[in-house]
Design a protein around this nucleic acid. Structure first.
Length: 741
DNA sequence: ATAGGGTTAG
């Protein structure tokens, strides 16, 4: 017995020597058994339980304490916070204050963390007041926690008499229904590894510019930081992370330098805050420097660094490096998977993205909300409606539908998979659609040729004070261009510049030029493009070249083509267009010369490909493709269809056939166009009366367009064809595009 | 005791 007492005494004098739950419980039992133990021993046991993070055991003791000491309160608050029970933690703090106890510097970090997690800035600020009144505002840990709070919680309220309340930040791990988001005013996008920045002009809200807002959000952090008598690595990491997360990239990078001057070395926390900056800047060489530093210091197996690296390489269009980092990671969590999936999808590797997604499920890693918004664009691009619907089901079951990112990606997916009605249904159910959601649905209607719906939605968006950006104007101008609404397009184009201060980009110019050209105002279009305030790219001139073909203006076509070949010598589409123009005019020699020139440059026509999803499987067809197992049946069906079509008055239009061959041969070439194979396969392999949905990687040709109108009538089916620029809904011998596309 | 990574529209 005596030896037990001695042991107890020595253990209690050195509580940190207790490292396991069972040891702690044994000690607890021994104390209860030894009669007449002083009540203060219970507090010691409580703090041992709390330091081992044992909430249940801590509570069992805490709840029977008649008047908990400061140490007991500290233990229980800490335990609540580390279990994510932030509300309980704050309630305990308030109860402690009510009981007349003064908190010490050990309590504030936990309490401030709870405020941060619950996004309660008001309470946090009053706790800051409390800190100051108690003279604890020089405590290292408390200050670190304060800076973290101010960096994470953006202020909602009045600043200099101007109200602003957009873009709150999301805090992970709180209420899943409270999904707030952060949005940047500056968009950037990557083309061939280069990045183009476009500013959307003024800030989203009245008065305050984005820079000012960022600075304001960080002002309190800096105030605390500058007053600190002593700063440790955590202090620096907190300011650096705060600056990086609030878009103040240059400041963040400067702080890393200053940190070095203060003789502190960047650690894995620092690096994972810095890497996203180089991802945003698309600066792979700086990113690689960080990668090298991480390897030299043994941080490269850190999951946080890993996912930042995966993302950085992917954003710099280095998908292979990105995947390599992923494969080398010894431990992968949901975020590492998200990073690699998003990386693939953002770089157009949709199949690979879906593959990683499947592997993630097989590895029993639960997808998170971000996973869905990352993978959904893959379904949208591949038109895999079946997959998209499955994901939609999963999203509903997980309760993720409230998330703006996910809902917007669903709207886009349904629209791109040809189902604009469901897209609209989801959009209408959204509580507060943001600009991206609006843009997705507007673009959806634009692609389906419902220009007037798109335009009225755009106006509605403006009326609801959602400020359109660069992309939103691309969407509304696309709507105009697909419907020939030239006057409306001019209005939007001018409003974009004058009302919103957005400088028009290539897409906007292209849409207007396309409209002018197709309305036959070729010279005007030529002038318009020539007077652009930025260098017109081949893509803009191409719209005019296409218009020249429609209006059979060979002279202008040659002039325009010359410009394109000079600007963008790799632009095959233009060679083919010009060649088509020559062919249509019967100038086979010139057409042939062009084709020889193309071959000489090693250019090959992008092979036409169409695909259709039947019974959860994608069937792809190339032009003249006889590899499909049902090829004979498809051919038979096409033959029967052709006979019926001709009886109904179908006359093949061979204008688009490039080849200088006999008319009979040309007709045959038309019949084996990839979209016809896909449509015929759809007819013979799906139940009568169901809608057929086909996707094509190029634009649908004039003759196939005519043929599909006939086919839709003959088989009594709706046929939805998504080509590279829009949707065609064929029904009863008519197409939704009204033959204007 | 306090600090870090991934997402939607063109």
């Amino acid at each position: 017995m005596g030896s037990t007492q001695t042991l107890l005494k020595s253990l209690l004098q050195n509580p940190s020597s207790i490292k396991s739950k069972s040891q702690a419980k044994q000690l607890h039992a021994q104390i209860i058994k030894s009669r007449g133990f002083p009540p203060s021993l219970m507090t010691t046991i409580l703090s041992i339980y709390s330091s081992l993070n044992l909430l249940r055991e801590s509570l069992l003791i805490f709840n029977i304490l008649p008047s908990p000491s400061i140490l007991s309160w500290k233990s229980i608050i800490r335990c609540y916070t580390s279990h994510g029970l932030f509300l309980q933690s704050l309630i305990s703090f308030v109860q402690m204050r009510a009981s007349g106890k003064y908190p010490d510097h050990h309590i504030f970090p936990s309490v401030l963390k709870s405020c941060t997690s619950l996004m309660d800035l008001k309470l946090g600020e009053s706790i800051h007041g409390c800190v100051i009144r108690l003279g604890l505002d020089f405590d290292l840990y408390t200050c670190n926690a304060l800076m973290n709070m101010y960096g994470k919680l953006q202020t909602i309220g009045e600043v200099g008499g101007m109200r602003f309340c957009d873009s709150q930040k999301r805090i992970v791990g709180v209420d899943p229904n409270v999904e707030l988001k952060q949005r940047s005013d500056v968009g950037s996008r990557r083309i061939d590894g280069k990045v183009l920045y476009h500013s959307c002009g003024k800030s989203n809200d009245i008065g305050m510019r984005k820079r000012d807002k960022e600075a304001f959000y960080m002002e309190n952090v800096r105030k605390v930081f500058d007053r600190m008598p002593k700063r440790d690595l955590v202090s620096w990491n907190t300011v650096i992370a705060g600056s990086a997360q609030n878009g103040m990239y240059e400041e963040a990078l400067m702080m890393v330098k200053e940190m070095g001057d203060a003789d502190l070395k960047p650690d894995s926390f620092t690096l994972s805050s810095v890497l996203p900056i180089f991802a945003e800047y698309v600066d792979v060489s700086k990113g690689k420097e960080i990668h090298g530093y991480a390897i030299r210091h043994g941080f490269d197996f850190d999951v946080f660094i890993g996912s930042s690296l995966i993302d950085m390489y992917a954003k710099c269009t280095r998908v292979d490096d990105s995947r390599r980092v992923f494969c080398l990671l010894p431990h992968r969590d949901a975020i590492s998977w998200n990073s690699v999936i998003a990386g693939c999808v953002q770089n157009g590797l949709f199949d690979e993205g879906l593959n990683f997604f499947r592997q993630m499920l097989m590895a029993k890693i639960k997808p998170r909300h971000v996973t869905f918004s990352s993978i959904m664009p893959a379904c949208a691009h591949l038109t895999t409606l079946h997959m998209g619907k499955q994901l939609h089901g999963y999203i509903i079951r997980s309760g993720f539908l409230d998330n703006v990112f996910i809902a917007s990606s669903l709207v886009d997916m349904y629209a791109k998979c040809g189902n604009i009605c469901i897209a609209r249904w989801i959009f209408d159910k959204m509580e507060s659609p943001d600009m991206v959601s609006w843009t997705a649905i507007i673009m959806g209607y634009a692609l389906h040729g419902h220009a007037h719906v798109a335009l009225s939605l755009f106006r509605k968006m403006e009326m609801e004070n959602v400020r359109p950006n660069y992309v939103a104007f691309v969407a509304v101008l696309t709507a105009c261009s697909h419907a020939g609404l030239i006057d409306e397009a001019w209005k939007f184009f001018n409003s974009m510049i004058k009302d919103y201060g957005i400088a028009p980009g290539l897409e906007h110019y292209a849409a207007v030029a396309d409209l002018l050209g197709r309305a036959g105002r070729l010279e005007e279009a030529y002038e318009f493009i020539s007077n652009m305030h930025i260098e017109p790219a081949g893509s803009v001139w191409s719209t005019l070249l296409a218009a020249c073909r429609v209006h059979k203006n060979i002279e202008l076509a040659e002039k325009v083509a010359k410009k394109i070949f000079k600007l963008d010598p790799e632009n095959m589409g233009s060679y083919i267009l010009l060649s088509n123009i020559y062919s249509a005019a019967g100038r086979w020699n010139e057409a042939a010369k062009l084709r020889v020139a193309m071959k000489g440059r090693g250019m090959r026509k992008k092979p036409a490909c169409s695909w259709i999803e039947v019974k959860n499987k994608v069937h792809a067809f190339m032009a003249g493709d006889n590899s499909h197992p049902y090829y004979d049946r498809i051919n038979e069906a096409l033959k029967v269809l052709l006979e019926q079509m001709e009886r109904e008055g179908y006359v093949p239009n061979t204008d688009d056939v490039l080849h200088d061959v006999e008319e009979e041969q040309k007709r045959y070439i038309l019949c084996i166009h990839s979209e016809r194979l896909a449509i015929a396969f759809g007819i013979i392999s799906t139940p009568a009366g169901t809608t057929i949905r086909v996707t094509k990687n190029l634009r649908v040709c004039v003759d196939c367009h005519t043929a599909t109108k006939f086919i839709s009538k003959i088989v009594g089916r709706e046929i939805v064809v998504r080509d590279v620029s829009r949707f065609h809904h064929f029904k009863d011998g008519k197409c939704s595009c009204g033959d204007y596309w």
